[in-house]
Amino acid sequence: MEWTSYLAPLSQGAWVTVQLTVYSTILGGLLSFLFGLGKLSHNPLVKGFSVAYIEVFRGTSLLVQLFWIYFALPLVGQAIGIDLRFPPVVAGVVALALNIGAYGAEVVRGAVQAVPKEQYEAATALNFTSRKRLWRITLPQAIPEMMPTFGNLAVQNLKDTALVSLISLGDMAFRAEQIRNFTQDSVTVYTLVLLMYFGMALVLTAFMKLLERYVGRWRAAGR
């Protein structure tokens, strides 16, 4: 078989990989802010829940989290009488997002805490409410600081999507495995897939760089 004939099924898989990456990165980003700010909350319940989430998902294997959500959760649901069966795509996106969200939450917390306390004082002196201080003073300064690490996390997430092939989701890694089983042409198939992941990572990195420049455009003014 010609290697070009691998491209059609691999492209199909690539599209699934792109979707998984985009959805789980966006959802993971939201979770990062939710729990990163939650960990800074003065409410002990919110804070405790956020800390627990971050520690559990950083402290366990993504693969096991994925299996747990896809295989174990439906059984737990059955036992308590709720339907917790998810299609593989949903399980995959949720597992990836929960995982990246736990790492991202620490990034958000760190960047928010790194905003100089003088900025809090200036905002207090101008009588901002704590909510407006967060949205208008702290976060606009913290977000540009988060972006380089968020870029790394997004690429990490792209590569982690390969794990979802193990819950029979037809992503790029899954297609590659199928073709290899059929043709035994490991070298060609895996080289192609390697290059395709690399290409996607390049595009993702470039996009994150643009985003970084956009949210921090005030820093470059006049320079």
Partner: peptide, 17 residues
Amino acid sequence: RNQLGMVFQQFNLFPHM
């Protein structure tokens, strides 16, 4: 606080505005 205004040694302007 509405009655008071403060000027800081290090200015503490908002850098993103």
